[in-house]
Design a protein around this nucleic acid. Sequence first.
DNA 1: TAATTAAATGAACGTTCGTTCTTATAATAA
DNA 2: TTATTATAAGAACGAACGTTCATTTAATTA
Lengths: 201, 201
Amino acid sequence: MARLKGSVGAETKVAILSTALPMIAQYGYSAVSMRQIAEAVGVNVSALYNHFPNKQQILLRLMIDHMDSLMAAWDNQDIRGKTAQEQLEIFTRFHIRFNVEKPKAVFISFMELRSLEPEGHKTIEKQRRVYEDILRDIIRSGINSGVFHTSDAHVAAMSVLGSLNGVNTWFRAEGRMSQKEIEDTYVDLTLRSVGYEIKGT
Amino acid sequence: MARLKGSVGAETKVAILSTALPMIAQYGYSAVSMRQIAEAVGVNVSALYNHFPNKQQILLRLMIDHMDSLMAAWDNQDIRGKTAQEQLEIFTRFHIRFNVEKPKAVFISFMELRSLEPEGHKTIEKQRRVYEDILRDIIRSGINSGVFHTSDAHVAAMSVLGSLNGVNTWFRAEGRMSQKEIEDTYVDLTLRSVGYEIKGT
DNA sequence: TAATTAAATGAACGTTCGTTCTTATAATAA
DNA sequence: TTATTATAAGAACGAACGTTCATTTAATTA
């Protein structure tokens, strides 16, 4: 009928995003309809268009927000003055923690790249590359300072990211390992993979 | 109108699968319509139903065939009597090669698990676990024989698989590295990650 | 050769899709 | 207080969806 008492646009917008996120993560962008999102939010379909010009912009907003929050979280890590092996450990723990905390947003950012129209795709790809470069630079500095022994910093970075991203595919909070144990194990795997010699082996 | 001269059911079935594969890989299962598949194959939509009872079965067939071909290809690898480090090297090269050769089928098997109905999902998950166990057992045997030093064979296997699966996200045949160089680099990263000490470092 | 089966077409089914338009009213600005 | 803007509902748009059906004819079997 008409505007509802107490309705606030900004709140509805947030509700749309937080409702759409798990739905898209579970069923995929094109399998989730605007009507399904609207029903889950508790509004009429047409109300969605007061906050987003179209469906595509909902997905794009989810992905941009995710990448922004990833970069912001990384900026809170303090790696100044640390050795390359310390930095790589920090990155490893950070990446696992972030992925485990936001599995659905991570999943979407990975799976729905192909659902983005060219412009949005480019935007996200660029943000992703910035993040990858952080890791690559850490590895490169370790090679330069002689503590890492691996032939190609870029390939090593891709390998490490693949390894870490895999955690979300099998990690369950109620599993046999605590998150700390998992982090410890991955720190070990990661440092060794780039040829860092862990004392005592 | 009617059956066409020279039409053979088995050929059309293969054509449907090989046509649908790249389309689903690019746009996603639910974003690709039966009409789009039919048009690409060059038949009427309804003809698809002479060969598959519904859309879901096309996806399931693609994924089952992929997993079968993966397992068959692995069975052609001869690892009898080899050391754990040799077996891990064989697995690494095998996995990269297979993934690079069939990037689209690999992509679908990874991305469209969620698009499978429960029964099919269970089938594919089971096949996937069999494959993962191959790697886990190799790593476990290396730990037992004392050549690998890593705390958890299962986690290590997941890490290695994640690392190797990542290759498809960035590998381009026309890139700066040949496939052999990439394989060599990953063999190094993989063996090191599980704590195998490569001579000469 | 006759009967049956396989493989295709095209029309049609009801449903759902993303989106737009009109209208109503709450909240805010002038 | 009045005018404007923001936020919602609901009806409706044409298009597309997966699937079914009747029909036709080629290929195969009896």
